[in-house]
Design a protein around this nucleic acid. Sequence first.
RNA 1: GGGGUUGUAGUUCAGCUGGUUAGAACGCCGGCCUGUCACGUCGGAGGUCGCGGGUUCGAGUCCCGUCAACCCCGCCA
Length: 588
Amino acid sequence: MVDKLGDWVRTHTCGDLRGAQIGQNVLLLGWVHRVRDLGHLVFVDVRDRYGLTQIVVDGEHLRDRAKHLRAEFVIGVKGRVRARAPEALNPKMPTGEVEVQAVEIKTLSEARVPPFVIADEVTANDDLRLKYRYLDLRRPALQANLGLRHRVTLAVRKYFDAQRFWEIETPVLTKSTPEGARDYLVPSRVHPGEFYALPQSPQIFKQILMIAGTDRYFQIVKCFRDEDLRADRQPEFTQIDVEMSFATRELVFAAIEPLMRDIFQVIGRDIATPFARMSYADAIARYGSDKPDLRVGMAIADLSGGFADSTFSVFRDAVAGGGVVRGLVVPGAASYSRKQLDDLSAQAREMGAGGLVWARRSGDVVQSSALKAAGADAIAAVLAEAGAGATDLLLMAAGPAEATSKVLGALRLDIAKREGWLKPDEYAFVWVVDFPLLEWDGEEKRWVAMHHPFTSPIEAHMDRMEQEPGQVLAQAYDLVLNGSEIGGGSIRIHDNALQQRMFRLLGISDEDAKLRFGFFLEALEYGTPPHGGIALGLDRIVAILAGESSIRDVIAFPKTAQAVDLMSTAPTPVSLAQLRELRLKTDA
RNA sequence: GGGGUUGUAGUUCAGCUGGUUAGAACGCCGGCCUGUCACGUCGGAGGUCGCGGGUUCGAGUCCCGUCAACCCCGCCA
């Protein structure tokens, strides 16, 4: 039986009441969290976004009513706040020094038995949680994540406002410019056979805003990419998009570092600025990744020199063939068992390495999987060169430089994870800089932009773009936090001629460039300020702040790895009438 | 596109080399209980073992296919 709300207005939330309100008459509205029926005495915990308050019900008539309450019913309670007896205090609850003695109870809404218990300590399967997202979101942990996300976006807007940036909305229905990720397409009814694309990023619009003289722009904006998903990737995601006129890399960094400081203030953490910097080449060589996790050391060192004339033919031949021998020192891992070492080798081979060689000291003697082949003196020398101490383990692999570092880098992360060295509340920022402008796409047999085609080469390399495209560095940068790419940006090309050269390098014909980017190339001709910017991944940043491993836990209504919304069941077929109106046919 | 993990009660899981009636905990329903707060306690209901096919005297268990969720590689300018 359900009651009408009538003139009931809440006086407090379920997280408000403290000792100061003792003796007051209050009215609470919320969800039944738990009912504890002790016979002649019934306790009901009422929950809302703000917290939990214990209601006490005795007296025959009301007690009967309380016994019929079930989890997730929405109720109203009129009552009086009273102090709990000293032995009945609950220090685990913020409202635990008081309780509300019920005078009147209304059931405003009944609830079916929920498919899973709504409590942080109970976790159902992901698909069930997503189907009943509104129930999952009632869990305090997810409520806290939504609140955190709100406070972060608020901090972002406050910061940029103070720095005289304007938040400007760019269109969601835009032009498809295939190059990079797949677009989500939206058919036009008014123009049959034609399509809008949902933006992968507002890149061109924000650059045009610079041409339009808005000087400093930011936007907290949804972007869309029709690519396969991961724990840190959703088909629609939110960027903090930033663009500045007359910007240099240093000016962009100087704008973003204090922003990150303000964002981390939201969780009460002081982060140190300026951030560390590392070239892309160093990141790849020393960490095997363009997004190094610097919470741990274990940098990869080049040990090729020690093996150029070695008796160990595998390593000697690798070096002679233009490859490298590289290694990393795992601190304190000299005690690894034979099985652990074998597992690491197997793992390295799985990742494409020819093999993994380990070495360590044991008292005065050295041990190594290549001891016989290389000789004790050579192993001792390389241990010394790598800086391995008495309790450390040296892992080595040989082969082409980049591939070797990537395998060792993956091992490094795996070991660090297993050893618990990656603390979620430790924050290691690094700017990765000096990216190559282009990379060779072996399948398409053409150069493709590493960042995007609007990224400027560094000024000193502009003349060499056509001669040595692979050697040209870009004015591009990524912001990396704990091994996660949380942002990327660049100084843009602001010169029409340079932009056209870039398109040609990418194998885009002049006609094609005109067709796809003509409006932008034309805009560049009307007085374009040098400019640059960055886009930060809001979902990833909030996930790291919240200590969540998946961005799904900081997005209100996320999609599955198959890009399905299990709650609304999107995507779905549409009616023939709808298709006809759009003049579309499907063979699905 | 490729690889891996998982799928058994409402939920989270166990179920050994294939063998009688598929179990536990939580949740749910009912009884008892005046200080609980993950209440306690007694009792009860609840199963197409994801789905389809195969092997077998016999399949939750083995095989093939398929669907779904998750993780990774490719992909993500």
